[in-house]
Simulated scan of single mutants.
Amino acid sequence: MAKYDPLKWYLGGRLDARVVLDFERMEKILGFALPRSAHFYPAWWSNEVGGRHVQAHAWMEAGWHVDGIDLAKRHVVFAKRGG
């Protein structure tokens, strides 16, 4: 199992077109704390294709992309790709 598979499975099971997750909820889904960089660097949330960031692989393999991030409010908006 890959580290971010729980997020992939969670998003993959969602029927909504958009999902807003605060960092606390995402950490509960994952079972571990998000890295410090996720709290301070928007680039951590990039929809990177073919890159090394395993977190991006998780949401993109589930058919989602990050549609917005608010580091001050500590939440991220995921949207279904093509939706």
Rank of each mutant, 00 (worst) to 15 (best):
A17R: 10
R14K: 10
N47C: 11
S46V: 09
E24A: 12
A56H: 11
P35E: 10
A62C: 04
W45A: 09
I29R: 05
L11I: 02
Y41H: 13
I69L: 10
I29F: 05
D67K: 07
G63H: 05
P35A: 09
A62I: 00
M60N: 08
P42E: 10
G13T: 01
V66S: 09
W44N: 09
D22L: 03
V54G: 07
V66L: 09
S46A: 14
M26L: 05
M60T: 04
E27Q: 14
S46H: 15
W44T: 12
D16C: 05
G31S: 05
F23P: 05
M60L: 14
A62G: 04
L34N: 13
D67C: 08
F40I: 14
A38F: 08
V54R: 14
R36S: 15
V66A: 09
V19I: 15
I29K: 05
W45C: 07
R25S: 09
L11Q: 03
L11H: 02
F40P: 00
R14M: 07
V49D: 12
N47M: 10
Y10R: 01
P35L: 10
F40T: 15
W44C: 06
G50R: 14
V19L: 03
F40S: 14
A62S: 07
H65F: 15
V66H: 09
W59F: 15
A62M: 03
H65I: 11
D16A: 15
A58S: 12
E61G: 02
G31H: 03
R18I: 04
F40Y: 13
R14Y: 02
A58C: 03
G68F: 12
R25T: 13
A17I: 03
I69T: 10
A62W: 01
Y41W: 12
V49H: 10
L30E: 00
G63V: 01
S46W: 15
D22Q: 07
M26P: 02
L15N: 13
F40K: 07
D67H: 13
H57F: 11
M60G: 03
I29L: 06
G13H: 00
R36V: 15
E61I: 00
P35D: 10
A58I: 02
V19F: 00
L30D: 02
L21H: 09
F40W: 10
M26S: 00
H53S: 11
S46Q: 14
L30F: 04
G12A: 00
D67A: 13
